[in-house]
């Protein structure tokens, strides 16, 4: 319970940000940070808890984003309904990919490759079909009304994102104390042993895929509504895939607060670097890549390993 109070207190404090921060620039930095915390946690459910490392998580993000955009532009579906559908599509595609890959026992490197390839297939498909706007991308018509999930005030976008993120973190808090979460950890630590004591590893991994895809899809919906523009490179390119896994790994995989810490640290670093170096193209990604290499070399359990005693850090359940 202590962790639940800590979580709720943190999010309550974060909800005050738009009341205090009046500068558009800094509010935007906060939005980007919370966004990273959301996709990092979504990746963490699959990678950190169920132990399946995806290198193509942008796939589910892109599916959610295109779902809300295409339904809105071509069929006039209200984005609030699109939000539900986007999340559902994200989860659905995740389950489909998971069903195909886990059925054939693909693990480890193979799984990373398959997710990457699926994201690439979707990128090429989005690039070649007319109803996604092909290479030029798709634009959502500007109509800044809450009923169209568009806001004049950047703070309202922030609150919408924060609500999505809170839902994601509460889900992981629940996972931490549920049987499903325990099964995921068992599958992660030793799939064969887990299967031997009666854990249906296939079903557990599919459930992890579904949850992870659902929150990536939500993040995609937010992105589409915030920027009102999408193209295949944004939706299915490597940027979101890398950011999602990086945030989780820097913070500490398989932990509730890890992705949040990771997101804050990474964005502090990248903002600091922009001040120091100016905005050179690629500079941000150089920092991200360097952080990834250094973390894996010197702190493979992430920042969260600093806050927890050594003997207990394997389980990921210290509530």
């Amino acid at each position: 319970m202590k962790r639940l109070f800590l979580l709720l207190a943190l999010f309550a404090a974060m909800a005050l940000v738009p009341l205090v921060v009046r500068s558009e620039f800094w509010l935007n930095v906060c939005i980007l940070t919370v966004f990273s915390a959301l996709i990092g946690q979504a990746w963490n459910i699959l990678g950190g808890y169920a132990g399946q490392f995806s290198f193509g998580h942008a796939l589910f993000f892109g599916v959610g984003a295109y779902a809300v955009a295409v339904l809105q532009v071509h069929l006039g579906v209200n984005p609030w309904i699109g939000l539900i559908l986007g999340a559902a599509f994200g989860a659905g595609v995740a389950v489909a990919v998971g069903w195909l890959t886990f059925r054939y026992g693909l693990r480890g490197s193979y799984f990373a490759l398959v997710t990457l390839a699926f994201a690439e297939v979707f990128r090429i498909l989005a690039n070649s079909t007319p109803w996604t706007g092909a290479g030029e991308g798709i634009m959502i018509k500007l109509s800044p009304r809450p009923s169209m999930m568009q806001f004049k005030d950047l703070g309202h976008y922030y609150w919408l994102l924060l609500a999505m993120t809170l839902a994601c973190y509460l889900t992981v808090w629940w996972l931490d104390r549920s049987r499903l979460g325990a099964r995921m950890l068992a599958v992660r630590d030793n799939e064969d042993a887990a299967a031997a004591i009666g854990v249906d590893a296939f079903a557990v991994k599919l459930q992890a895929m579904a949850l992870s895809g659902l929150f990536m899809g939500l993040a995609g919906v937010f992105y589409a509504q915030r920027y009102l523009y999408l193209d295949p490179g944004i939706a299915f390119g490597p940027t979101e895939s890398v950011e999602a896994l990086l945030v989780a790994i820097v913070g500490g995989i398989g932990t509730l607060f890890g992705p949040l810490m990771g997101a804050v640290v990474l964005h502090a670093l990248s903002e600091g670097a922009q001040v120091a170096l100016g905005s050179l193209p690629g500079a941000n990604m150089v920092i991200y890549g360097t952080v990834l290499v250094l973390m894996v070399l010197f702190m493979p359990r992430g920042l969260a390993s600093l806050t927890r005693p050594r003997s207990r850090r394997k389980g990921g359940r210290d509530a």
Binding site: F53, S109, V242, G282, A283, N284, G289, T290, V291, V293
Partner: peptide, 14 residues
């Protein structure tokens, strides 16, 4: 896997 991914990001963006 992660380290080779990180290296590729660093090399490409450098």
């Amino acid at each position: 896997l992660l380290v080779t991914l990180g290296l590729s990001i660093v090399i490409e963006n450098l």
